[in-house]
Computed example of a mutant assay.
Amino acid sequence: MVPDILRHPKVRLTAAATRNKERLEKIAYEYNVETYYTIEDLCKSTNVDAVYIATPTELHTEHVRIAAEAKKHIIVEKPLSVSLTDADNMIENAERNGVQLIVGHSHSFEPPIQKMREIITSGELGRVVMIHNWYFNDWLYRPRTPEELKTELGGGVTYRQGSHQFDIIRFLGGGMIRSIRAVTGIWDDSRPTEGNHSIFLEFENGTAATAVYNGYDHFHTTELTFDIGEGGPLTKSNIYAQSRRLITETNSPADEVSLKIASGYGGSRSKNYQVAEKNHPFFGLTIVSCEKGDIRQHPDGLLVYGENEKYVVPISKEETGRFNVIDELCTAVIEGQRPVHDGYWAKANLEVCIKAIQSSKERKELYLDFQVPVKDKVKNIIG
């Protein structure tokens, strides 16, 4: 997020909080910002107008409360919380204190997904009839902290990654999902949380959708997405089972946490996306089928399979989903425009996560109660 915060013309990075002393020292040195060990102290700063909360999911409710009561606007990571009751409390706290609450489902903010929605709503390809997002990768075997492997704390692929899939699908389909039938799987006893799911979704208007995810590090969807993954840079050719091998060689949960820290900001294994080749990120394989054609992502934008021709819709690579997350907050705060990805949107997304796991346990179709429609904005993002 930091590079996009720095380049946004209406935002200035002023402070950071973390319990990690080395990270605090590094960010203070690199960006000349205030540093704190707690969110309470950070929110007392008069130089902070908004906070980005990237703490573990089970802490979101309390951290949103602290920020809201300090009258700070909020971007909070997905999923919003681990229960619908907590989600309601977060929404109520934000509204009572007059602050904006946006959830960083950053993949539906990506320009190709935004452009897909624009094409759908234009009607040029007719009504949308199917939406699919399929993602196979190594998620379960990347270094994880303990809570990321506990479903009750919002861990596992259905909460952590399904939240991205459902957000993309709901955004493209208009938001209003009617029902869900899901099968989730826990295939590795040493990683006792959902590592895969196969989910069928039906929208109120009859549009069908599937969300398929497998994080067990065998087949990778990058083989179908031009060797480009969710980070944007090209993937390495030797990634097969790389993460599984690394975790097998790890001796303890503490060692795994150390690997996770090393992969984060300032760590020895962290990626430098600022110097990597720039591509639109692919969160798996996303295909939209309309009455008169299909749409999928392309390294330069979108690939449209129309009735009479196949063509590329170019999209600038300068704009990013994370920049758009920040921009949506700015527009909400400065212009008073209600954001798309507000607390109600995030609660609706969380409902899909919860009902997916419930549907799998009960082996039946379930109906949804808290879905909300997309609030479309007109925006030209053709490069």
Rank of each mutant, 00 (worst) to 15 (best):
F200R: 08
T222V: 15
I239H: 11
R181N: 07
I169N: 04
E249D: 12
R269P: 02
I228W: 06
E249C: 09
D255Y: 07
D188S: 08
K260E: 08
L149T: 11
I180G: 02
F171G: 07
T193L: 08
R244Y: 11
N214K: 04
K278P: 05
G155R: 03
Y265W: 11
Q161V: 10
G264L: 10
E202L: 01
E223P: 09
G162Y: 08
F283W: 13
L234T: 12
G284A: 08
N214V: 10
L201A: 05
F226I: 12
F219H: 14
R170G: 04
Q161L: 14
E230T: 10
V257C: 01
F166S: 02
K236E: 12
M176W: 05
A276E: 15
A208D: 00
G231D: 14
Y240C: 06
L149F: 04
A254L: 15
Y216H: 06
L259T: 03
G156W: 04
V288Q: 01
I261M: 14
G232T: 08
T286Y: 02
V257E: 09
T207N: 03
E223V: 15
F282A: 10
A211N: 06
R191M: 05
I228E: 01
I180K: 07
F282E: 06
R244K: 13
I186S: 09
W187D: 15
E223K: 15
F226E: 14
S163K: 02
G173R: 04
G154L: 01
Q165H: 13
F200I: 05
A208Y: 02
S270F: 06
L246T: 11
F166R: 05
N196Q: 12
I239M: 13
E202W: 01
K236H: 12
H220R: 12
G215F: 04
T158W: 06
S270N: 07
V212K: 13
N214E: 09
L172K: 00
S163L: 02
T225V: 05
R181A: 10
Q161F: 12
I247D: 08
D167R: 06
D188P: 08
M176I: 05
M176F: 05
I239D: 14
S237L: 15
A209T: 05
S258P: 05
L224E: 08
S270K: 11
N238H: 06
F203D: 01
L224F: 07
H218R: 15
A254F: 11
S268K: 13
G156I: 01
S237C: 09
I228N: 01
N214S: 12
V183E: 13
Y159W: 05
G267Q: 00
G267R: 00
D255W: 03
T158N: 07
F203S: 02
G229H: 05
I239W: 11
Y213G: 03
A211F: 01
T286V: 06
I169Q: 00
A262M: 00
P192D: 02
F219V: 13
N205M: 07
K150M: 14
S190C: 08
M176A: 02
Q165P: 03
E194I: 11
N214R: 10
G195S: 02
A241H: 09
